[in-house]
């Protein structure tokens, strides 16, 4: 699998990373280098192997349904560039 220039632009846009036209060929070759490195794994037949989700044989820990957090709106919005009555204020987004 190899990526073309349009794919690079598309991925960058989806990740909201500004990429200039000059940067695209460089990023494309870097991505393709990574992909071809990883592609070595294709040599191994894993058709009968379940995907590994963790290196440790443990189950997902669950917590009891108890309300024990929140109540500090001032801390939640403390780092926001703009706030109003503990709301985050962002540029208008409306359909």
């Amino acid at each position: 699998m190899a990526v073309d220039e349009n794919t690079v632009r598309r991925i960058a846009h989806l990740a909201r990373i500004a990429v200039t036209d000059e940067e695209v060929p460089h990023l494309q070759s870097e991505l393709n280098a990574i992909l071809s490195f990883v592609a070595q794994l294709d040599a191994v037949d894993v058709s009968n192997v379940e995907p590994m989700t963790s290196v440790l044989p443990m189950a997902l820990r669950q917590r009891a349904d108890v309300m024990n957090d929140g109540g500090y709106a001032d801390r939640i919005v403390a780092n926001a560039p703009q706030t109003e009555d503990n709301y985050f204020v962002v540029p208008k987004v409306v359909e």
């Binding site: 939640i76 109003e84 709301y87 204020v89 962002v90 540029p91 208008k92």
Partner: peptide
Amino acid sequence: HDLSPGASLVDL
């Protein structure tokens, strides 16, 4: 969207 003319307010 209707509390502020030029901005949207976000409540999480």
